[in-house]
Design a protein around this nucleic acid. Sequence first.
DNA 1: CTAATAGTGTCTATTAGACAGTATGTT
DNA 2: AACATACTGTCTAATAGACACTATTAG
Lengths: 272, 272
Amino acid sequence: MYNSEEEFLKNYNPDDFEKLSMTVDILIISVSSEETDNYRKTDKKKMSVLLVKRDNYPFKDKWCLPGGFVDINEELDEAPKRILKRETNIDNIYLEQLYTFGSIKRDPRMRVISTSYMALIDKNRLKQTINGNSSWFDISLLEEKNNIVDIVLSNGIETIKFKIEKKLKDKTTDRYSFKVLENNSIAFDHPLVILSGLERLRNKIEYTDIVFNMMPELFTLGELQQVYEVILGKKLLDPAFRRIIAKKTIKTNKMKTGEGHRPSSLFKYKSN
Amino acid sequence: MYNSEEEFLKNYNPDDFEKLSMTVDILIISVSSEETDNYRKTDKKKMSVLLVKRDNYPFKDKWCLPGGFVDINEELDEAPKRILKRETNIDNIYLEQLYTFGSIKRDPRMRVISTSYMALIDKNRLKQTINGNSSWFDISLLEEKNNIVDIVLSNGIETIKFKIEKKLKDKTTDRYSFKVLENNSIAFDHPLVILSGLERLRNKIEYTDIVFNMMPELFTLGELQQVYEVILGKKLLDPAFRRIIAKKTIKTNKMKTGEGHRPSSLFKYKSN
DNA sequence: CTAATAGTGTCTATTAGACAGTATGTT
DNA sequence: AACATACTGTCTAATAGACACTATTAG
């Protein structure tokens, strides 16, 4: 044996174990507005996610989450930042690690383990158009009885559908294992990443302030409430919503007018 | 370019990117009782964690979390199960993924990314003594002002101390980045794993039933309350605790007697 | 009896849910 | 005026916090 760590390291052969590749995948979530034909009605909010069309094998021509290999000299947490910068050309985006997926067959090329991240962004920060092979897809999520979730993504031209079965990993916890039942055109195990992220967002919107990462500087409480509603998938009662949100927002003296109905005050985020 | 996925894969060289090694680390948490000298008093509960003494470089003779390399042909989630079986010789232990740490210099040998897991276990299930180079350490956690956490681990013979500074990653979230300020003898970045796990446990005990993975089949409400108190780090009021826990437990007709005071009913876990 | 924990009753404070009502812009 | 949303008042229901009280054993 060796007598010192130094000596050990000098003789260590890092190729004793077969190595593997590591990637990161990023679920970039934002909210978008769908215009209505009635001039009085406010635009309907939707959640949307940024997908990239693969221009090479494997999964050529399928859509997938932005991602890439972790460089051997790169901090794990730096990889998603680098990719976010590449895809959106902005820094300082809210980012949090979701989960690490490591099935043996998740990539047909070789053994790849992938850490997924969730990024939240206000679309108004995206000054320039995103590059050609990427597109925002509106999300509609339908949770059926038997723990089967139907997700439909649409960018107006193409529609992606998949169906996932959730099974409790253990009766004592809130963790599910996901099984993809149907999937017409999304690559890798990205349906799992999308569902994990949407559930994480739905949970955290209730006890953190992360929603404000998806909001512009100034917003009305009606808009904010709509974002909550689309993320939680249910209607909220106005007075209750305003009671709770009052602690997290400050009223400005600016108003939003010209909407075909009573103007509303603009608010901004107040951190504690 | 290639004309089919098949053709692409045939020509793919997986060594175009420099590969790396992947490990898993497992934080195995349990509760133990510390005997008191007063025959009337109930034993004091403590959280404890299983550590292994490294018998080789790097970090020779330092304590660390059980762990190991992920095999090239092994599902990521199978690796912690294999190691748990090796360390405790029991199957079916509660296990959940915590976080993936990937600093460049976390292992002096080479680039290693590590996914950490948390396992919860009832010590009574450990029939045989654990093997010689591993030991249970009682945890005492002290959260100081300025977001500095002091953790002391002790197995009765040796004491391990470290101090971690928590810094909010972002004002909108509940996620912290951890920085190790002092550390006398625990290997790798395992202080971070331990703190992540303890915080995860503290959060989840409030809204899931995971605590019952650390309890024997039958337990008194007093014992259960003590476990809650040691995990949450604060005293709870009896009536409030019983109101909440009533939904998760069933009273059996067995009693625990001989404790120097009024006997108490034994309860068991009721899942919904 | 005493020390110690087991277990309950009840008041109060806080928060969530529900609904109805008033307010005010645009067309 | 009509419509749509903005915003508020207030009642009720549910839950959490606090405290005091009774119950029961081993020694």
